[in-house]
């Protein structure tokens, strides 16, 4: 559905229009991260979802994600919201390799990409919470999870 169509359907109003408000930081990094979380509305529910790829240890990210989800749940309740569901999925991305060949006599060229990342996907479905504040909170959560663990 296009953004124009959404303007006619209150239930499917996108938060994208808010991205152009001056109150949002114009720092490029924040604009990039702002796109990581999408907001939808449906039957009174506010749905904030998105994710990030994080170059960190899987167990560490799993632990931090659990801690941050608890903090998010507490934040929703402290702001007198109702939690429908807060859920996340973690998967390891990489390592990978690119293989190429251009003729039958040559050998296959192999380029390895040894980097491993954790891909975090998160969805928060809540009621009676300010959507802009929820999006901001979720972006803060992603930043918390991404922060390197102190040595």
């Amino acid at each position: 559905m296009s953004h124009h169509e959404h303007e006619h359907h209150h239930d499917h109003e996108h938060c994208h229009e808010h991205d152009h408000h001056h109150e949002h930081d114009h720092h490029h990094e924040h604009d990039h991260h702002d796109e990581e979380i999408e907001i939808h509305f449906h039957e009174g529910a506010i749905v904030a979802s998105g994710g990030r790829e994080i170059p960190e240890d899987y167990d560490e990210i799993s632990k931090k994600t659990s801690e941050c989800m608890k903090k998010l749940a507490l934040w929703v309740e402290e702001n007198e919201g109702i939690i429908g569901h807060i859920k996340a999925y973690l998967e390891i991305v990489g390592p990978g390799a690119m293989l190429s060949i251009t003729d039958s006599e040559g050998s296959v060229c192999v380029k390895n990409n040894d980097s491993k990342k954790v891909k975090l996907s998160i969805a928060t479905i809540v009621f009676a919470v300010d959507a802009k504040k929820l999006k901001k909170k979720l972006l803060e959560i992603l930043d918390d999870i991404t922060k390197k663990t102190a040595d």
């Binding site: 979802s49 859920k87 999925y89 996907s121 969805a123 479905i125």
Partner: peptide
């Protein structure tokens, strides 16, 4: 069916 844009359950089930 997920109301959001990001699938969570589908990844788990497909895996």
């Amino acid at each position: 069916n997920e109301i959001g844009e990001t699938g969570i359950d589908d990844k788990f089930i497909r895996n």
